[in-house]
Design a protein around this nucleic acid. Structure first.
Length: 432
RNA sequence: GGAGAGGUGGCCGAGUGGCCGAAGGCAACGGUUUGCUAAACCGUCGUAGGGGCAAAACCUCUACCGAGGGUUCAAAUCCCUCCCUCUCCGCCA
């Protein structure tokens, strides 16, 4: 969310800066609501001041046992009329504030100046590539063909148990997924300085609003029928909310967390896309990186966080590229996003496997996460932190990339060196 | 699920209708004292929003005692709803 005072004073500027990103926002309503809100607030505060003044006076008289005088004051100063009046005004103010936040909470973040302008993914900018897509002496199979042939992926039974867009992993497949999770967590905690978190997978409405999933994207979320809980679509939600309504010590920043969680997404509106395989599921595993940084260091932190995700792919020997999302392709809350795309031989192109974003103060303002200087330096004012996060990595898609990249002519798959210690020394997945 | 207790400033804790944004203590910060450390003493010590101001300092107003409503001229204090924590019982991995 944007600062409301800033909104009031710079509404047209922001509107212009957002361009198409703000096309569906009711700007004029917002402008009026903000103006009404300000005027009414001033009026209410003045009236309240009057009431308070005479109340104090009545209190003084009562203490002096001058009940009659107090009674008189009560009648003569219009207290009896001011009170209902202020009640009505407050009700009006509540309605206005509701209107304000209805609109304000749906305004997306402003892209950073380094973000390329564009309307869709064709406007994204490639930053760098790592590794060479390998040449196969045979036609590479898709990961679901490989997995089903090896007996480690089972989509038919997943559909029976749950439905479309679910998967069952068995045997070495399940073990590979688990190995990846452990390997990623170990690397981030021991080499990259992140603290491991195992958070709740169900969160409340406030948490979802703080990180920006609500109110605009409720249809993307799974929600419980009888309780106002949502299944997390990413660990970003519970982990960023760890510090909701907190003021952090400046010298503790940056604070870095990594969390493995399953993620749950409705995938409404993606019918027909990636219907086969592990690419797009209602439930998938992800290791997430989250950072709380000082504003003047957050872009440096974004580079660092992105490199931590890249390190996984490099270790696994999976070719990838990094792209900067253009204005039209970025998410709602982000100010800048790098997507890391891994090479998938069967599709003959790069597919997203990680998305690393700086949200600047957008989430922090919604979540009320501040930081403040410590050590008695006189009143350093608290400010909003910048929040960042990125996948490090999406585990299911990593399995996809490994199966396809390391498939052999005989249908077996060799296991990347770094994972072998996590798989009991297994070097190859062959048909059982 | 049943019964009970409770949520007050960074922490502890007083406060049952008006002089309470809130006693007292601890911690923190500044200072005095002091071979050093410690102690003692003095002082400062919440957050947010609005207005004044070009702005800072500063002045001033408003709000905040878990959240939201209500009663009242006046609410930390009374009433209602909700959330959370703790204890006991039941159930359960």
């Amino acid at each position: 969310m944007h600062d409301l005072r800033y909104l009031r004073d710079h509404l047209d500027t922001l509107r212009a800066q957002l361009g198409p990103r703000g096309a569906d926002i009711a700007w004029d309503d917002l402008r009026n609501s903000l103006e009404d809100r300000r005027n009414l607030t001033i009026k209410i505060e003045q009236t309240r001041h009057e009431i308070k003044k005479f109340s104090d006076e009545i209190g003084r008289l009562m203490r002096e046992k001058k009940a009659a005088d107090a009674e008189k004051l009560q009648e003569t100063q219009g207290m009896r009329t001011m009170v209902p009046e202020i009640g009505a005004q407050e009700e009006q103010l509540r309605a206005i504030e509701q209107q304000v936040s209805n609109v304000a909470l749906r305004i997306p973040n402003l892209p950073h100046s380094s973000v390329p302008v564009g309307s869709d993914s064709s406007g994204n900018k490639e930053e760098r590539r790592w590794g060479e897509p390998q040449q196969f002496s045979f036609k590479p199979k898709t990961h679901w063909e490989i997995g089903e042939n090896l007996g480690i992926l089972d989509f038919d039974r997943a559909a029976k148990i749950a439905g479309a867009r679910f998967a069952v992993l068995t045997g070495a497949g399940a073990r590979l997924e688990r190995a990846l999770i452990n390997y990623m967590l170990d690397l981030h905690t021991t080499q990259h300085g992140y603290r491991e978190v195992l958070p709740p997978l169900l969160v409340n409405r406030s948490s979802m609003t703080a990180t920006g999933q609500l109110p605009k994207f409720e249809e993307d979320l799974f929600r419980l029928r009888d309780e106002d809980y949502f299944l997390i679509p990413t660990a970003e939600v519970p982990v960023t909310n760890l510090h909701r309504d907190e003021t952090l010590a400046e010298n503790a920043l940056p604070i870095r967390y990594t969390a493995y969680t399953p993620c749950f997404r409705r995938e409404a509106g993606s019918y027909g896309k990636d219907t086969k395989g592990l690419i797009r599921l209602h439930q998938f595993n992800k290791v997430e990186l989250v950072s709380f940084a000082k504003p003047d260091q957050s872009y440096e932190e974004l580079e660092r966080l992105t490199s931590h995700a890249e390190a996984i792919l490099q270790d696994l020997g999976l070719p990838y590229r990094v792209v900067t999302l253009c204005t039209g392709d970025m998410g709602f809350s982000a100010a800048k996003t790098y997507d890391i795309e891994v090479w998938l031989p069967s599709q003959n192109h790069y597919r997203e496997i990680s998305s690393c974003s700086n949200f600047e103060g957008f989430q922090a303002r919604r979540a009320n996460i501040r930081y403040k200087g410590t050590g008695g330096k006189k009143d350093t004012k608290s400010e909003f932190v910048h929040t960042l996060n990125g996948s490090g990595l999406a585990v299911g898609r990593t399995v996809v990339a490994i199966l396809e990249r390391y498939q052999q002519p005989d249908g077996s798959v060799t296991i990347p060196e770094v994972l072998r210690q996590y798989m009991g020394g297994m070097e190859r997945i062959s048909k059982a």
